[in-house]
Design a protein around this nucleic acid. Structure first.
Lengths: 162, 162
DNA sequence: CACAACTCAGTTGCGCGCAACTTAATAGTA
DNA sequence: TACTATTAAGTTGCGCGCAACTGAGTTGTG
């Protein structure tokens, strides 16, 4: 019934750490991908990908944003954002224009079409909540945990080799 | 001190659900990406990406695996796995051969070079643990939570429109 | 046996995510 | 004022992750 064991004698500590189901990052990625599948389904009526949806959320919430600021909010750099915004622009949802104050900066804002999409978008979190059965408290708790985890990982990543 | 509010009058419930920092999936993805950055750093000596590392973990642990079985373990389909395995093969770490029993199936196994890499790989989880400061109990708890979450999301995704 | 249904791996196409680089504009400084 | 350093956005290249499809091999049913 058990599969052929790896060609070693006994499971040492080091080997236990290499077991696939022991990888926290793997579990995190799996949860993220499973969530992504739910959103992909809920978003297909809007014609948005999940990253595009996040960008629209940021713009709906904050109004006009520079690419840099948007990147800070979404944790993305221009290498990802530039083509993403180009696609949103060609879909008619956002407008891009260089800042008069600082010609290096590009200001992104929603068009009338993009603003109109917001109403439809309010259905998305409701649909996701309905399908997953999460309640508000549960989601907030999970968000808090993940936020603290991310902060810790960011600190570990930023830190020099120590 | 507060940022300019969005061009609406009051924050309704629906609008609160659209706030960027209220998106659980976003928090999950951020944590996953932050973790990925740590691994990317820890893995660069091995010359492996994180998905490639996961594939090697599965092969080290289980020995020879079909592409299908490997995909089940890693939650990936052949569209992702085929090119990934091709890269691992051209790096000399794995070998691919069609199964004699079932010519549709391709069996993947580690080469001597791939097996030798395992020793070096034992350093990776230790390095990650060192940098993040996680202890075993903490990681196990988090893994359990994420596993239950993934199961729930998978069920929500598999379910018909209900 | 014949033939349809299914399974498995692979390919193509597209959108991220990220590193490395380029170009243009601004800020800082001698 | 020149001149360097810095900053912002964009581009290129590559590796996933996933949907859609192809083609070869296998299974099941008449």
């Amino acid at each position: 019934m058990t599969a052929t064991p790896p060609p070693t004698d006994a499971p040492t500590d080091a080997e236990n750490l290499l077991r696939l189901e022991h990888q926290v990052c793997f579990a995190l990625q799996n949860a993220s991908r499973a969530f992504g599948a739910i959103y992909r389904d809920a978003l297909k009526d809007l014609g948005l990908t999940y990253p595009q949806y996040l960008a629209m959320l940021a713009l709906w919430e904050h109004g006009e944003l520079s690419v840099k600021r948007l990147g800070e909010l979404l944790r993305l750099d221009s290498g990802t954002l530039s083509p993403l915004l180009k696609r949103l622009e060609s879909a008619g949802l956002v407008k891009r224009e260089r800042s008069p104050q600082d010609e290096r900066s590009v200001l992104v804002s929603v068009t009338a079409t993009g603003a109109a999409l917001r109403e439809q978008a309010t259905q998305v979190p409701l649909e996701v909540a309905r399908r997953t059965g999460f309640d508000i408290a549960e989601m907030r708790e999970l968000r808090g945990l993940l936020g603290r985890l991310t902060d810790r990982l960011d600190a570990a990543g930023t830190a020099q080799e120590c």
